[in-house]
């Protein structure tokens, strides 16, 4: 399974000695570089189990900037 192309990562307790074996096996793979996730704190485990996507939109592409054009000027 550690060699399967669809794998995305392995979570294992940092107190578990198998973690070194897993990281060796993962490094042998071709393709994406995969993480061995051994977070000590569960909030950081969330961070390690997600990936980020940025979406940038030009909201003025069809016509113009409605928010700027409908701005009510203050003195």
């Amino acid at each position: 399974m550690l060699a399967h192309p669809a794998l995305s990562g392995v979570v294992v307790d940092s107190g578990c000695e198998i973690k070194h074996y897993i990281s060796e096996k993962l490094a042998l793979r071709h393709g994406a570089i995969l993480p061995v996730i051994t977070s000590e704190y569960f909030d950081s485990m969330i961070q390690r189990l997600v990936t980020e996507k940025t979406i940038s939109i030009d909201t003025t592409a069809s016509g113009g900037n409605t928010s700027l054009m409908t701005l009510v000027e203050e003195d």
């Binding site: 979570v11 997600v50 980020e52």
Partner: peptide
């Protein structure tokens, strides 16, 4: 946005 990683092994 935060999305999933994919297929995970929990050992």
């Amino acid at each position: 946005y935060l999305e999933n990683r994919g297929n995970i092994i929990c050992y």
